[in-house]
Nucleic acid binder design. Structure first.
Length: 465
DNA sequence: AAAAGCGTTGAGACG
DNA sequence: GCGTCTCAACGCTTT
C-alpha cells in the first residue's frame, strides 16, 4: 500500500547513511521532510550566533539537496543532466505536459481583502523613475518593446492570432536580419515573468490541436523546450556560467585581448554584419537568435578567440531577455564548448547574412555610414575600390574600420586550436579513467541497497499486454 | 569528404 | 534463461 510519510529531521541533517529517511521514502507516494524550529529554544537557551549560523547553513544545504533530488527531469534521467535536446524530449514525454496556467485574480478574489496604502505611498514607496535609479533616459534607445504584463499579453494575442504562421513556424527559417523582428520577441516578457511560460505553452497547444503543425526543436513549442533544456543544465551542472570547474565545458586556451573585445562589443570589428548586429543589440536590447549565433561564433571559436565568458557578460548587460541559464548555455553552444561539438562549422561573417539580406538593408539601417555602398560591397566594404568608397562617402580605415582580423586566415587557425583543445580533453578523461585505481576491483559495483536518489527516481515497470 | 561527442542499439561476456 | 555490464558501431546534431 502506498502511504504518506513525514520524516522529521531532528539530528541527522543529511541524506547519506540515513536509514530512517530511506524507510520513510519506501513505498510512499507523498513525503514531507520537516525540521522544527522550536520557539521555546531561542527564548530559553543561550546559543552563540556561530552555532545558529551553522544550523542555518546545514538546513539550507539539506533543503538544496532535497530539492535536487526532486528536480524531476534530472531525476527521470537517473540523476544525470540530459545533454542533448532529443534526450530532454524523451524525458518530457514521460513527464507529460506542464500544468495548466492559473486564471488571473479578479475582484471576486479580493472581496474580503483590502490593500491599505498610506497617504505618502506614492512619494515614499512609488515606483522610481530612471533618474532616481541613476540612469539617464536620454541614453535609452527607441522603446520598441515596452515592459509589462499588459504588453506581453497583447503581443501574445497578436502572434497567436496568426494561426498559419504559428503552425508553420520553424525557427531556422526565420531571418536574423529582417528590418523588423521575424520572431515573436516574447523572450523579454518571459525573462521578467510578465508572460507565463505555461500560458504560452497551452495557447500554442490549443492552436496546434487538430492542425498540421511544426515540431520541436524548430517549432514555437520547441523554443520553449530549449529554455527548459538550458534551465535543466543550469540547475544540474556546477559552475555552469564558467569554463573552469564546469564538467561539460571544453577547456580552451582563449586569448585575452581587451582591444578586440571592445571592438566587438562596440560594433567596430570592420565586418558590417557583425557590427550591425552589435549595434542593434546595444541600441534596442534584442537581436534575433541566429544573429546571436553569428556574433558569438565571431567572438569565440570563429574569429577573435576570446572566451565565451566575456561575451556572456556583454549579453548579460545589453539583452532585455538576458536569462542566466540560457545565456550561459547558448554561449557554450556557440563556442563549441558544450552541447555543440562540430567546431569545424564556422559561421562566415560575410556569407551568413547575405542569404536572407542580399542588399544589406539591415546593415544600412544600423550602420548609416555604409548607406551609400553598393550591395556588391556592403558585406566586405574594404574590397571596394577607393573611388567607390569615396563616392559612398565612407573611406574604409577612416570613416569605418578595416577588418580587425582576416576571417579566412584566423578561422582556419582557430579550428586547429579547437581541435587541439578537444584532443587535450579526451586525453585527460582517458587518463582519469586509467588513473582511477588498480585493475581489479576498480570498477564501482552496485551498492548494497538502493540509494535515496534511486528510490526517488525508480519508476515502476509498466508492462502492458 | 572529413573533422566531435552524445545516446542508442545490438552483440557478447559474465554470473 | 535472465539480468547486468561492456564495447563497438552507428545515427544524429536548430545552418
Amino acid at each position: 500500500m502506498k502511504h504518506i510519510s513525514i520524516h522529521w529531521f531532528r539530528k541527522g541533517l543529511r541524506l547519506h547513511d540515513n536509514p530512517a529517511l530511506l524507510a520513510a521514502m519506501t513505498d510512499c507516494h507523498k513525503l514531507y521532510p520537516i525540521f522544527i524550529l522550536d520557539p521555546w529554544f531561542p527564548k530559553n537557551m543561550r546559543v552563540s550566533v556561530n552555532r545558529w549560523r551553522f544550523l542555518v547553513e546545514s538546513l539550507r544545504d539539506l533543503d538544496e539537496s532535497l530539492q535536487k533530488l526532486n528536480s524531476r527531469v534530472i531525476a527521470e534521467n537517473n540523476g544525470k543532466v540530459p545533454l542533448t535536446y532529443v534526450r530532454l524530449q524523451t524525458l518530457l514525454a514521460a513527464l507529460g505536459p506542464p500544468k495548466r496556467p492559473m486564471p488571473a485574480p479578479t475582484l471576486e478574489n479580493l472581496k474580503d481583502c483590502c490593500t491599505p496604502c498610506k497617504d505618502n505611498h506614492d512619494a515614499e514607496y512609488g515606483i522610481p523613475t530612471l533618474e532616481e535609479l541613476g540612469q539617464d533616459p536620454e541614453q535609452a534607445g527607441p522603446r520598441l518593446y515596452p515592459g509589462g504584463e499588459s504588453e506581453a499579453l497583447c503581443r501574445l494575442d497578436l502572434h497567436m492570432n496568426r494561426t498559419a504562421w504559428v503552425c508553420n513556424f520553424q525557427k531556422p527559417q526565420t531571418e536574423p536580419n529582417s528590418l523588423s523582428p521575424s520572431t515573436t520577441v516574447l523572450s523579454p516578457y518571459i525573462k521578467f515573468g510578465c508572460l507565463s511560460v505555461r500560458t504560452f505553452w497551452w495557447r500554442l497547444a490549443e492552436i496546434y490541436q487538430g492542425r498540421k503543425h511544426s515540431s520541436p526543436p524548430v517549432s514555437l513549442h520547441g523554443q520553449l523546450l530549449w529554455r527548459e533544456f538550458f534551465y535543466t543544465a543550469g540547475a544540474g551542472i556546477p559552475n555552469f556560467n564558467k569554463m573552469e570547474g564546469n564538467p561539460v565545458c571544453v577547456q580552451v586556451d582563449w586569448d585575452d585581448n581587451p582591444e578586440h573585445l571592445r571592438a566587438w562589443s562596440e560594433g567596430r570589428t570592420g565586418y558590417p554584419f557583425i557590427d550591425a548586429i552589435m549595434t542593434q543589440l546595444r541600441t534596442e536590447g534584442w537581436i534575433h537568435h541566429l544573429a546571436r549565433h553569428a556574433v558569438a561564433c565571431f567572438l569565440t571559436r570563429g574569429d577573435l578567440w576570446i572566451s565565451w565568458e566575456q561575451g556572456q557578460k556583454v549579453f548579460e548587460e545589453l539583452l532585455l531577455d538576458a536569462d542566466w541559464s540560457l545565456n550561459a548555455g547558448n554561449w557554450q553552444w556557440l563556442s563549441a564548448s558544450a552541447f555543440f561539438h562540430q567546431f569545424f562549422r564556422v559561421y562566415s561573417p560575410v556569407a551568413f547574412g547575405k542569404k536572407t539580406d542580399r542588399g544589406g538593408e539591415y546593415i544600412k539601417k544600423y550602420l548609416p555610414c555604409l548607406q551609400k555602398f553598393p550591395a556588391e560591397y556592403i558585406y566586405e566594404p574594404w574590397k571596394a575600390p577607393r573611388s567607390v568608397q569615396e563616392q559612398a562617402g565612407c573611406v574604409i580605415g577612416r570613416d569605418y574600420p578595416k577588418p580587425i582580423v582576416v576571417h579566412e586566415v584566423v578561422s582556419k587557425r582557430n579550428v586547429e586550436r579547437m581541435k587541439a583543445a578537444y584532443t587535450r580533453r579526451s586525453a585527460s578523461t582517458t587518463a582519469q579513467l586509467e588513473g582511477g585505481g588498480g585493475k581489479k576491483g576498480a570498477r564501482r559495483k552496485t551498492p548494497a541497497g538502493p540509494s535515496v536518489a534511486e528510490l526517488l527516481t525508480k519508476k515502476p515497470k509498466t508492462k502492458s499486454s
